[in-house]
Design a protein around this nucleic acid. Sequence first.
DNA 1: ACAAAGAATGAACCATGATTCACTACTTGT
DNA 2: ACAAGTAGTGAATCATGGTTCATTCTTTGT
Lengths: 209, 209
Amino acid sequence: MAYRETEKMRERKARARQNIIERTWECVAEGGFRSARITRIAGLAGVATGTIYRHFESREDLFAEIFRLATQREVDKVAEALNVYGNAVERLDNALRKFAQRALKGPMKAWALIAEPVDPKVEEERLVYRKAYASLFEQAIRDGIAEGCIPDQNARLASTCLVGAISESLVGPLSPTQTDIPPGQDNNEDELVNTIVCFCIRGLTGTRS
Amino acid sequence: MAYRETEKMRERKARARQNIIERTWECVAEGGFRSARITRIAGLAGVATGTIYRHFESREDLFAEIFRLATQREVDKVAEALNVYGNAVERLDNALRKFAQRALKGPMKAWALIAEPVDPKVEEERLVYRKAYASLFEQAIRDGIAEGCIPDQNARLASTCLVGAISESLVGPLSPTQTDIPPGQDNNEDELVNTIVCFCIRGLTGTRS
DNA sequence: ACAAAGAATGAACCATGATTCACTACTTGT
DNA sequence: ACAAGTAGTGAATCATGGTTCATTCTTTGT
């Protein structure tokens, strides 16, 4: 008898898997899921295409995992930003700002997570993601209504509007075919974030900033 | 000498072309551009696949034309709704409502026009479309600022927010993988439209409805 | 050093779907 | 009726890109 899987081997495999995940996310950040080719991912990861299939059942499964990991990160950040000291409006303002800033830092990623059409297994993950956001914002809106700093309204729909306004405003203008915004114009970006967040908060509260 | 293209022939060709366009739009309304197969379009139109290529240079060109025609229709409708009697806020309210209602009536169409990733030639058309909307809303917002019914703000960015909020709020919830909303719930739809439009108007004006 | 077991490889395979083109069928002017 | 020219056809071709699998390389226990 011979080869038995050893700890060292397990680790090496885990590292390889992790590496594939990271390279894939790089690809996605570059052109979305659709254009992330297995061959390219394998190339970046420095392995053969077949190797990908030793670690993941299929392309779709790989993507689903990537998606899950990435969205978890995003949702956590927003939850964190929603957890600062202050009233509901201030906390929402903070969270929206964080959301917008993160999306702007990686517009392609944001697009892939929010709007890119994806295969069923990935779409399933997206549903979870949407729900996670919706719940976070919805709860904050309810808090605000209870505190009296937000007028009574349908918190669920309002939270959808929030996500919609912010994500499209960011993803739309900054999606794939966009070359006319010179990079490094933080000025522009700051104004964009401000305008969007103001719009959202006003939409919610009905009061001028 | 013989065959010279005659009026009758020209008409027949035009009719065939028109038919292809309409069948294609049907396909798009069903599953977006990506899933609109040439073979299916040809089948619906009752012609051979090769025939499509007698009328259009390529699939992409066909799609670009479809897109152009469809968006023209949409933009015209919104322009019209923006042209009613009333102050800027009322006119915007009316236009937003029209936009939302039309999108809800054909969620897949709306998604295809607004958010579906498309090939370059089609994306180019979409840019025109976005600009057309942006200009319409932007002008109305400027009017409102001049009239004093909308506070001073960056009209261009605000118009983007409007389109963003409304389109994502509609397209997101109603995009492809959506089966949990029983059809015919006009109640739901009305509330959705109301909430979104209220949100947009408040976002713009900062006043409670 | 050797054999057993798994890991890695990447060229071959396969599915999908757009596009082509040799051919047929139709229109038209004489 | 015929010839010239055009429209229509759809099976064959081509391109893309995910997936497989026979083979080679590594690791491990004796």
